[in-house]
Design a protein around this nucleic acid. Structure first.
Lengths: 153, 153
DNA sequence: CGCTTCTGGTTGACATGTCACCGATCGCGG
DNA sequence: CCGCGATCGGTGACATGTCAACCAGAAGCG
């Protein structure tokens, strides 16, 4: 038996896979370009600020933020350093745990987010949701859920 | 009328969107890690080699390769330089057009691709397709087609 | 032919992301 | 209280990706 023969993709799968690869490369690139052109924020900056402002306090432990974004800690650390240098967020010592820090949105960060959001959301609407039926949106969420579950954590 | 009020995402859309963002961040990262662990290739390397070996001659104009991958030309140029340094591909002058180059897979590149492919395909199967129904695979392709069409080109 | 413009591709500076490793603190068992 | 592994987070070196500027050959046009 050739039981160790790889399970190659069927034509259907191959087509879906290649299209998906193209999409995951091009859509974020496009959104990033739109954000940079219309605001002071990059797409990663935007993500960080969205998650921070999701919470009332506008303040999150680095670890919590990392969990929400699902970023590696070193990536997050580097990015926070860059955002801190630009005055978008601030690190503050954490009273409860001497090792940790809390990340706080600054006024400038909040202002930048508010300025960037409308055009960004409109772009997402136009590029993605305007073309999809409600059923497709559900399918998209289901597919993402399924695969994310297989990725673990 | 507040006709310039941004069209915020509905809850359904918001959920689908956030899951999709997570997926597009984490799945490529995972695939890249698997490739690097099990072979000499990164995910971008793999993409380049797949497209090159798609053609019988194993040789493509830089421009053609760029179109197939949908990469920016400078990204492709940088990446080819790195791959050339590692002996995976070779640039050759193009007879038909003095400005252009042809990219050729080397024996080492071909060997690396053949060595990396089985484990990579198996990983894609396990993480993605084993969890999805045939209908979901079709939905995935349709969604990708639709959004790619809206991205233009 | 000679001039301009367009095109294929490269380069350098810089932003982003990853890996491997470090250092401090916490928390728990002895 | 001490010791020690686990946890929180940062750092440096490096790979990857982007933007803008550039250069050489091609192509159109007088």
């Amino acid at each position: 038996m050739t039981s160790d023969e790889p399970r190659w993709l069927t034509d259907e799968q191959q087509r879906a896979w290649r299209q998906w690869l193209l999409l995951t490369a091009r859509l974020p690139a496009r959104l990033n370009r739109q954000l940079l052109a219309d605001s002071e924020l990059s797409l990663p900056d935007f993500d960080v600020l969205v998650h921070l402002t999701d919470v009332d306090s506008g303040r999150l432990r680095v670890l919590e933020l990392g969990r929400a974004l699902q970023w590696e800690k070193s990536r997050l650390s580097h990015h926070l350093t860059r955002m801190e240098r630009r005055g978008l967020v601030r690190r503050e010592d954490c009273a409860a745990d001497g090792r940790g820090f809390e990340v706080v949105v600054t006024d400038a960060g909040l202002a930048a987010l508010r300025a960037a959001a409308p055009a960004h959301v409109e772009t997402v609407q136009q590029l993605v949701f305007d073309g999809l039926s409600a059923a497709q949106v559900r399918a998209m969420a289901d597919i993402a859920d399924t695969v994310l579950a297989r990725l673990g954590d």
